[in-house]
């Protein structure tokens, strides 16, 4: 029996849609074919058939650098992954963009709790405790740079800077906070030609916390 994530995924899927940098197309009765969205129509892609192959495909970028942030816009190209059904599709997408489908379902069901950045920073202990000392101005420029969709991260930010609801960074365009916007398209009001399943950020990731620590330490 499909669980709630598979049900939500099935509802969100159209014949072809984008999920971050991935193009998902329906194939045959139950199957799906995935590839990098910029590889659509290319011949000679390396073919994969196991959802677990997504682990290796998503591990390194095109110049063999390890990708610590899976939602960074540096997914490698040149591959095609065919999966047999919805459950394998969900598995593969969970490897490409870990945790994003669960966040999406929680968001659609109004269960997704967002955490203001200040709260995330104040919660840290050990070597990350010092990150809370970052100033508002430093947050403004750090987030504006670190999370930007062109070169940083493709998630739409749902969290605020603090509990009074201030936006995390004035340096980011308004659509960075808009789940319906196709972040991989870049800034501006352009909408994608095909449906987009959003990648959501409900709370600052560990990489941003680590970057805040570096700012405070002046590294």
């Amino acid at each position: 029996m499909p669980d709630s994530i598979e049900r939500a995924l099935a509802a969100a899927l159209t014949d072809a849609c984008y999920f971050g940098q991935i193009l998902i197309r329906k194939a045959g009765e139950n199957g799906f074919v995935l590839c990098h969205r910029d590889d659509q129509g290319f011949d000679g892609l390396r073919l994969f058939q196991n959802p677990e192959d997504a682990i290796e495909i998503s591990k390194f970028d095109d110049i063999e650098n390890y990708r610590p942030l899976k939602t960074a816009p540096n997914l490698s190209r040149g591959w095609q992954l065919a999966v047999v059904d919805l459950s394998d599709l969900r598995r593969a997408l969970d490897y490409f963009y870990p945790g994003r489908l669960a966040a999406l379902v929680a968001w659609k069901e109004n269960r997704l709790k967002t955490t203001p950045l200040r709260q995330t920073l104040d919660r840290q202990s050990g070597m990350y405790r010092i990150a809370a000392k970052i100033s508002d101005a430093q947050i403004n420029s750090l987030v504006g740079d670190f999370c930007r969709s062109d070169g940083g991260c493709l998630r739409a930010i749902l969290w605020k800077r603090n509990e009074s609801g201030i936006i995390p960074s004035t340096k980011l365009p308004p659509e960075k906070f808009e789940p319906a916007h196709d972040q991989a398209l870049g800034p501006g009001p352009t909408t994608a030609a095909i449906a987009v399943i959003p990648l959501l950020c409900q709370e600052a990731c560990n990489l941003l916390v680590a970057a805040a620590r570096k700012v405070v330490k002046g590294e």
């Binding site: 945790g99 669960a102 966040a103 709370e203 990731c205 560990n206």
Partner: peptide, 24 residues
């Protein structure tokens, strides 16, 4: 198990993300 998932301190999905798993 009905579902099996992983979560990491320094990778995705994060431990925070895992709070939204298993909503079945």
């Amino acid at each position: 198990f009905v579902d099996v998932a992983c979560a990491f301190w320094k990778e995705e999905p994060s431990l925070r993300d895992a709070r939204f798993f298993f909503d079945d």
